[in-house]
Amino acid sequence: MATWQPTWSDPFFQKGQVITGLWNKKRYRIDGMLGSGANGEVYRVSSEGQSYALKVSAQAPEISLEHKILKQLQGVARGSDLGPLIFDLDDVQTQRGKAFFYVMEWVQGTDLPDFLQKRGPHWTPVLLLQLCTYLERLHKQGYCFGDLKAENCLVNEDRGVVRLVDFGGVTEFGRGVKEYTEWYDRAWWGQGSRLSEESYDVFALSMLAVQLIAPEARKSVQQIGPNYSLLKKAIVSDPRFENWRGLFKGVWDGRIRTVASLREALSPLVKRSVEIEKKIKSKQKRRRDWTDWLLLGSAAVLVLVFCQFLLF
């Protein structure tokens, strides 16, 4: 829902500032801003030597409801990190008046486009498959994620594990999706309602695939507005989507409306990705061996030269 702070107002907190919750009296040092959106601001904070993420808003209901859902998810899915872990919910006095915040686990990671840039586009199906698993677990709890988008996914760089942040769009099945982003919203594309249900997330996931494979498509859409048949044409004729056409056709003709069917369509793509990654890994290995020899060789030559000096 809405935030009534005018867009030009100052941020709630300054770096280095220490804040104290009005009810629970916990103290947090502000270490920097992680992001801001329609719904508030997210800061990296520390308390007793631990780092956390703190989300603050002038709107109590948004913070309360988001906190409640995260808490609930934490309860059912212990250890399986469905959402960021939750630590505190409190009020704080700021220069902008009373504000409301909750404290959660700081999820570290790179955003999806950066990660793909570094590790190669063959990681796309792997990331989407992980999101499928994620969504399946959320759907089991009776919730739709709603605002699925690249900015709300963070990947751990070493292990390639995806986590979702921003649960502001998470909506009980059967209601109107609380928060959404046009590009990912099937209703905006004229492809269905904005009702919170499994197929809503599936459509968003398919748009995330387009966004990751052909990032420039979204920019051109901004000029012409939503035209789904044009987008379809672009996908059909674009060589980058060569292996993806089966999946997209499934989304278009209604065969893929569940996460399970999307996962199935992803699996051949994932297999191919694993092959590619294996090749890259083995190439890297061979190259390392060769450079190792080079290093060892040059070291040996150096030693020999050095010895020559000593001997003669």
């Binding site: 309360s64 919910l89 409190d90 009020d91 009373k98 109107g176």
Partner: peptide
């Protein structure tokens, strides 16, 4: 009023208001 309630209690009110609004 709701703002004077402890945050956890306030969540229950918020949830109710959200439902009624819908």
């Amino acid at each position: 009023d709701a703002d004077g309630l402890p945050p956890e209690k306030r969540s229950d009110v918020a949830e109710m208001v959200d439902k009624l609004g819908d």
